[in-house]
């Protein structure tokens, strides 16, 4: 009998703590996990559960009301927006940080800078030699993430502007391995999230389209305007939402939350 009572008390205790769930992009996952840990360690009565699976998975779950927050490394696609609109659901978008892509080459490469259009020409196969970029007479070996990665999709849409990858582009299944390949291949070029850059590769300065000023990857919000390869990390949630969601988002945008973004390797 005493056991039953304590069990009931335990369940009652759980019920008073509100559970919110976050699902979606694997790029945003480490950020959300760190947010959730820090948030819950402050002894609040909200439990946060975070799972990955990809941007599309999270958004589909939000549509089915299977999650409270969908995390995404890309804006909603048109088809998804129309589905929410058809279901009469008001969805809010919140940018929690920025993922900046660095264009990296082998440290021995003397080339310092590149324009967005030149990057596109390299990956579509129009530029094949470093001497066309003012470097040595050496073939360019472009490396890319596999097509299953969100970074790939972002790169194709925003850098190649819908162009197609040339067949000689090498596809690498993980970012860590891509950095390894860049560090040991003299003519290599590749794109990686700024959090993965290490001293074994060299980062190039990049110019916007039609601009002649080159910038290194942004480290702060104010620099984001000038650096052309950054994507927002987004939270989507129902409007109005649960009390716990509002409280969690307040934490995300607090000074402590912003510090977490930088610590995880993204730009607040």
């Amino acid at each position: 009998m005493r056991f039953l009572w304590s069990a009931l008390f335990f369940l009652g205790g759980c019920a008073r703590r509100e559970l919110i769930t976050i699902r979606g992009s694997d790029t945003v996952l480490p950020l959300s996990q760190t947010f959730a840990e820090a948030f819950m360690s402050q002894g609040r009565d909200v439990l946060v559960s975070v799972t990955g699976g990809g941007s599309g998975v999270g958004i589909a779950a939000l549509l089915r009301r299977d999650t409270d927050i969908a995390m995404s490394s890309r804006p909603l696609k048109l088809g998804e927006r129309l589905k929410f609109a058809a279901a009469g659901r008001a969805i809010r978008e919140d940018t929690v940080g920025w993922d900046v892509l660095a264009i990296c080459v082998h440290p021995s490469n003397p080339v310092q800078r590149i324009s967005r259009a030149q990057i596109a020409d390299i990956y579509t196969g129009r530029i094949r030699n470093w001497k066309d970029l003012g470097g040595p007479d050496m073939p360019i070996l472009p490396y890319s993430r596999e097509s299953s990665s969100g970074t790939f999709e972002f790169f194709r849409e925003y850098i190649l502007k819908g162009g197609d990858f040339a067949p000689h582009v090498r596809f690498i299944p993980a970012t860590g391995m891509l950095v390894q390949s860049l560090s040991q291949t003299a003519g290599a070029i590749g794109y990686v999230g700024i959090a993965y850059v290490n001293p074994q590769v060299k980062v190039l300065a990049v110019a916007q389209d039609g601009d002649t000023i080159y910038f290194y990857p942004a480290r702060s919000r104010s620099e984001l305007q000038r650096y052309p390869i950054a994507r927002p990390l987004l939270y989507y949630y129902e409007n109005p939402s649960k009390r716990g969601v509002e409280e969690f988002l307040r934490f995300v945008h607090s000074e402590e939350g912003r510090a977490i973004v930088s610590r995880v390797g993204y730009v607040p």
Binding site: E146, S147, S148, P167, H168, V169, F171
Partner: peptide, 24 residues
């Protein structure tokens, strides 16, 4: 290297059937 090249030398990158399945 996983580049889908039609190569006629073993010193070029290749993309194999199982690797394509696993990656895509």
């Amino acid at each position: 290297g996983n580049a889908p090249l039609l190569s006629f030398t073993p010193l070029a990158p290749v993309r194999t059937l199982p690797a394509t399945l696993a990656a895509e």
